[in-house]
Design a protein around this nucleic acid. Sequence first.
RNA 1: GGCCCCGUAGUUCAAUGGAUAGAAUAGAAGUUUCCUAAACUUUAGAUGCAGGUUCGAUUCCUGCCGGGGCUACCA
Length: 639
Amino acid sequence: MILEKEIISKIKDAFQVVFGSELAEGQVTLQPTRKEFDGTHTVVCFPLARFSKTGPEQTAEKLGEQLIETSDLFSRYNVVKGFLNLSLNHECWISVFQGLNDDPNPGKLESTGQEVMVEYSSPNTNKPLHLGHLRNNFLGWSVSEILKAAGNTVHKVQIINDRGIHICKSMVAWLKFGEGETPESSGKKGDKLVGDYYVRFDQEYKKQIAELVEDYAKHDDRVSSLKKPFHWVNQIDKKLKEGKEVSDEEQGILLILKTFIKKAEANAPLIQEAKDLLLRWESKEPAVYDLWKQMNGWVYSGFDTTYETMGVDFDKLYYESDTYLLGKDEVLRGLERGVFFKKEDGSVWVDLSDKGLDQKLLLRSDGTSVYMTQDIGTAILRFRGFPAIARQVYTVGNEQEYHFKVLFLILEKLGYAWAKECYHLSYGMVDLPSGKMKSREGTVVDADDLMQEMLDTAEEHTKELGKIEGFTDDQARELYYNLGLGALKYFLLKVDPKKRMLFDPNESIQFQGHTGPFIQYTHARISAILRKATQIGLDDLGDSLAKLENLEPVEISVIKLLSDFKEKIKEAAHHYSPDVIAQYAYELAKEYNRFYQEISIFNEENTHKLKFRIAFSRLTAQTISQAMALLGIKVPERM
RNA sequence: GGCCCCGUAGUUCAAUGGAUAGAAUAGAAGUUUCCUAAACUUUAGAUGCAGGUUCGAUUCCUGCCGGGGCUACCA
């Protein structure tokens, strides 16, 4: 911020005069003054003692003295230990406020001229979206908005994993057990319907495996005495995981049974059918291809509904079925050029041992591609389609950190200069109190269900507080939506993306305290003031600012926060961290609420003060609204 | 086994190497003739353990303990 720069420059000048030694740019550490001390800006003088050749405390004292004498920026100072606390004078704050109020581009930094592609969501098309996807989408969408505000051109994209064995599983189950069910016939949302068949496949598949294992066991003397071998394995596995003792005999049996299970997994008729279907799909057999299209279509329309509720969107969609072949070509080309190597069985690998990693498979021995192969293809395709993009940001969970490390290294090896600029926006899992979400154990928190719950809770709260007087039905619904989703988005975005976080479904997301609705409420409060101001014609600031004689401390601290906004956007963009914005919006709202409590705006007799406070409130509302917009949260006029 | 991440109030989250470790919730006590009490004020409560570097360590380094992840011819 300009203000900060100016202060630092004054400090450098003063230091030069008093101690005769020049400080470099980064040597002045300026930080916000803690609220128990007087002042707004604090210079940490410990590191300066080295250059001033005197103790930190004297350094601070002399520096403060000099600053007051020579600069018109500061009104007073105090020294606590080696900390120099500075207070800016009235005119300075007035001009800061003036600058913010006149800013033609509030909340938007100068263009960097850079183009960035941000990928997020990218779900598989075999099951509905869940809580984890919510964090992913809100994060990716918000980071995109933040990057835009920071002056970049952004392309929001996702890759849809529409191809592969997983979708074939749903298809097999639907063919076998579906009896022609469609979203229309059963009224089920398309993604839910397909997800159900995926689950069904898994259940039936498990059954077949268990049967096969039992059969193998029956014919093997070593284990034929076991009644339910499959169940037994699970028990022993559980024991091992809990660190309990397992006898040698049990371990021996376990080993035998594990080979049985592996064999059964490969030989179960259902998985054979799914694999067969995948081959038929790859050869584009019309019946299979049509069914694949139809079921994917169901999923897409289901996803579209969910995305709409979530309030996220994309500029462009990529489909794995379109990109996986390109990846394969790239790998083969790399093989020719000696970047990759082939093993005897025909599989293609990359050797990354020079980078401290191991070898990684790129093409199976049967020539089919793996996950990595497709990602190579997709990345290259994107840069071909958008030659101007400087980098790609991948919003993907942190369990794939290794994968992306490898991907970027491979792209680099293939000679793509932009590979170095690619970034894996890695975020932590959302845990439940019971641990990780597992679809098999039915502990997945469904995205649609959760959002609906949030809307219901918002409605309940609002009605309890009796705050829907004068609302039409549509307005009320809009409010519940904004509050419910605001609470949810804020909850997921206020946490550092890198960290894993906890979600307790039994303890519903709060609407009080450090929450989205708290900030929304502050905005609604200010809106009420602005409405009233318009009514009585106090909208125009006129020359009141110049005639203002003093500012209250709480007003100064709000102005300081307002002036921090752009710096926060910069920081959030730099770290890909919406939580910076979330924390900022909260601090601003909280500080304004203090002002609101302390000062009764319309009881003020001095017109200049009154007009200033209205303009000041408007600027706060505007900043809150913009900050929240970066998080994808709408702020209401009334609530 | 190897590699990576995380351990902060009862709980959920903060703290570019800086002051007496901040919030929120749950607990205790207050504030409504006054612009929206989804608010505000007061109070009590925490850095896993042991070393090291530093004027100064929640932050950096080492070891230990605890939790999670990756290490598939799965995606």
